[in-house]
């Protein structure tokens, strides 16, 4: 196990410099913000889909199974970021969530961390910071997935051994 871990890390680190093909769901109620952010993230090689509200985000997750990272604005009318986070973590435990927050809602962002968000960023944020966070989140998700695959494989092997 330990060995495998290290190996996977090494593989990921090699990939760091190159283009990353993470699938990102961007959730924010400001249409203009979502549009521009989508363009910028797409330009950086990410597959981006958008949602303008928490409800839309959950629908999008239903329809698009390959979401790796959700970038989520905390303060939204209707279902707010924290509620969305809870539902995402309940329905798609492997999907990582990066939260965007204004200063006034840092506390709710921290609460989000407790509820299982990957990290948070203060809005407005530098695109590079956001990219780095998305990359880390994606890495973590891949790691989790690998682990699951491996343990599945092991269980199959051990069953055969019976």
């Amino acid at each position: 196990m330990q060995k495998n871990n290290v190996k996977i890390h090494g593989v990921e680190n090699e990939n760091k410099g190159g283009p990353m093909s993470a699938n990102v769901l961007l959730v924010d109620d400001e249409q203009a913000f979502v549009d521009t952010m989508t363009k910028r993230l797409s330009k950086r090689g990410l597959e981006v889909r958008t949602a303008n509200s928490g409800a839309e985000a959950l629908t999008a997750l239903e329809g698009w199974k390959y979401v790796d990272v959700v970038v989520l604005d905390v303060k939204m009318p209707g279902m707010d970021g924290i509620d969305v986070l809870k539902q995402v973590k309940a329905g798609w435990p492997l999907v990582e969530v990066v939260m965007l927050t204004g200063h006034a809602t840092v506390e709710s962002a921290i609460e989000g961390m407790k509820l299982g968000a990957f990290d948070y960023l203060l809005k407005p944020c530098e695109i590079d910071d956001l990219m780095a966070k998305i990359r880390d989140a994606h890495e973590k998700k891949s790691l989790h997935e690998d682990k699951i695959l491996q343990s599945r494989a092991e269980s199959i092997v051990s069953r055969r051994g019976d």
Partner: peptide, 20 residues
């Protein structure tokens, strides 16, 4: 502050986009 934050965020993104 929060109300101002949203347009500021958009402005910064747009500026970043122009840079891109």
């Amino acid at each position: 502050a929060h109300e101002i934050n949203n347009p500021v965020a958009i402005m910064m993104e747009e500026a970043g986009w122009i840079q891109d």
